[in-house]
Write a protein that binds this DNA or RNA. Sequence first.
DNA 1: GCATCGCGTTAGGAAGGCGTCAAGCCCCTT
DNA 2: AAGGGGCTTGACGCCTTCCTAACGCGATGC
Lengths: 227, 227
Amino acid sequence: MSEARVLVCDDEPQIRRALGVNLTARGYDVDLAETGEQALELAARRHPDVVVLDLGLPGIGGVEVIHGLRGWTEVPIIVLSVREAEADKVAALDAGADDYVTKPFGMDELLARLRAALRRATPAEEAATIETADFTIDLVAKKVRDANGSEIRLTPTEWQIIEVLVRNAGKLVPQRRLLQDVWGPEYEKETNYLRVFLAQIRRKLEPNPSRPKYFITEPGMGYRFEH
Amino acid sequence: MSEARVLVCDDEPQIRRALGVNLTARGYDVDLAETGEQALELAARRHPDVVVLDLGLPGIGGVEVIHGLRGWTEVPIIVLSVREAEADKVAALDAGADDYVTKPFGMDELLARLRAALRRATPAEEAATIETADFTIDLVAKKVRDANGSEIRLTPTEWQIIEVLVRNAGKLVPQRRLLQDVWGPEYEKETNYLRVFLAQIRRKLEPNPSRPKYFITEPGMGYRFEH
DNA sequence: GCATCGCGTTAGGAAGGCGTCAAGCCCCTT
DNA sequence: AAGGGGCTTGACGCCTTCCTAACGCGATGC
């Protein structure tokens, strides 16, 4: 998910604006609605990844909006409300809301709850597989396939090294960090290990091991994975 | 889900008891833990459907428990805390918690949040039967049939191993995780067990046990079920 | 031009993991 | 009391992986 779409529905202009500004600044794609009707319509048209909903709306109420949404979508709903009463919270949550935040709320808390809701909503899409022109790395299955689709076997140590490098793709990983992550802090001087294993990895994955395309050495500093 | 399993972790006895009584009365299957260590161990053994966790634990703290759980499970975590500070909420939520409730809390609200968490967590009834060219596994009936339709008998331990592997089909399951799930956390070094039982399983299910097609060993790392 | 340093490459031996088998133990059934 | 099924435990051979040491090469600095 590059940028999540958030639908904010509140009848108070200052809250709409505050949320709009803050969320946009954080890189979210924000839709603003003033009434429940608007919210339902916008939700249907824009398919937000999460909804922030004020309970005290004029016209059709917040709980009805929840019902309306739950009729066709499982999008996470975070309810805002000035009402502290337990009965209100229970009603909103049982109607299908995911979270209930009492006004006045802290922006940081709301953002954290937003992140939590978004994190939950995207479980299956574990894009833990990295593709290049010459091979594909699947980090959860712990498998590598070459361009023909045949499997390439890697040893545990080779995997650990590749995991660190791939998880920091494009960035330089210092030798010390690799050694500490894979062998432990007391091995931070054993740069020999890295040379041996990087050669092994390149022999298995690089089309031309003597001219690495993917596992790049930065002399004196560390290694970098590029794709 | 007929009755959901709830793991409650709180160091205050009166809260443990109150939650235990209330949740049991509502038909939940409740496990109680007093410390973070206990909670992690119970979670590994019992696989709760939701965790209620006090943040102010003695010993290893609540946030560490969250990290420990998130290392291997996506079970919903509801955090309880006396701390109102926004920073605490943000930290807990970003560590992987799903919800944050401030003490003192209303039981009805907590129950509603529990229902919300459970509702979210049980979306897709997983396909309970897995078919391969050589056998069919029915996870709910706990039965395996070979290609001719005749039943293959499996022992309880064999079942537990197969269940973990099959539920993570395609993914590599680390030895430690298998040992913890089947025998308990204190057995995480007994890789002997895995060798013995995997051989047993292969003898019963693989067409050619010495060349496994389905139950694959990744030396030094773990096992993987493929179909 | 020479010494030095870091990196890549190779090969061999020690160590450890895996599959396999068999014996012993425990608990449940008969 | 006897039997059996299932789980633990230990021993063995095989094979892979990892560590280690040595050498060559190129770049850099003196």
